[in-house]
Nucleic acid binder design. Sequence first.
DNA 1: TTGACAAATGTAATAACATCACATATCGAA
DNA 2: TTCGATATGTGATGTTATTACATTTGTCAA
Lengths: 134, 134
Amino acid sequence: MTATQELTKNQSLVFNALARADGPLSAYTILDQLRNDGFRAPLQVYRALDKLLDYGMIHRLESINAFVACAHPHTHSHGHGMIAFAICEKCGQVSEFSDDVITGRVREWTNGNGFKQSKTTIEIRGVCANCSTA
Amino acid sequence: MTATQELTKNQSLVFNALARADGPLSAYTILDQLRNDGFRAPLQVYRALDKLLDYGMIHRLESINAFVACAHPHTHSHGHGMIAFAICEKCGQVSEFSDDVITGRVREWTNGNGFKQSKTTIEIRGVCANCSTA
DNA sequence: TTGACAAATGTAATAACATCACATATCGAA
DNA sequence: TTCGATATGTGATGTTATTACATTTGTCAA
Ligand SMILES: [Zn+2]
Ligand SMILES: [Zn+2]
Ligand SMILES: [Zn+2]
Ligand SMILES: [Zn+2]
């Protein structure tokens, strides 16, 4: 299966919940939103989330235990450059960006130290432009 | 109070547990290690951890829900440069480093986007040099 | 010294996040 | 059609973190 194709029923429901949200959602928030669609247990959500993470359609924000739909599904190639997230602690907005210099510096460190990197998390918490002017 | 001074009893116990560990510990692991010292409830650990984080003596690893004693308490100035952690998924070893170029690039992004950064997490998961040769 | 306030501690209960174990169903290829 | 891989349903359990409230300890000024 390729990334943007033929999701199963549960995967579609979970992805759509994230896609229509204006910010990150926790697994249990998703569960509550999908009760009327037949969801009864956390595992139904977590299994779908795992697949969607595999497909690169969503991201997990480790610092807030939440999940967000990928903001740039067509433009950035997950798996190559590292992705950074700026998370507003006021409104929950998440901005996603990729920086080749950061990616390069991390690679230099890992190569220099014989560290075989598998996954890298870069999360910036703070207050977004909108919320600081308001 | 300054950072490396006069911890309270509980703060000392928690800090020493982290300092003598060879890797990160979860709050509940610390709790279990301190049962004989009178610890009975998670909050006793979490409260001490919060203070030690304030003092910059320990770090929280968001991607693994664990805490680690600062590896460079005298050399790096927490609060200025951002700190990155390389976490071995085999042995648990954590290497801590700080990179001015990464710090600068993140600052460029946040300044350019009007984002007021408060805390930044950079965590690299993978396998350390020792574990990949073994 | 004592009264008052801040900081630290003790404890139980609860909330929030995530996985295990096992049964059943669905789908596609041999 | 039969087999294996994938997906699903469900309850129980495991793990991480916080709320609420009572008590103790330390500090300092009146
Ligand atoms: Zn993305
Ligand atoms: Zn905001
Ligand atoms: Zn440190
Ligand atoms: Zn290792």
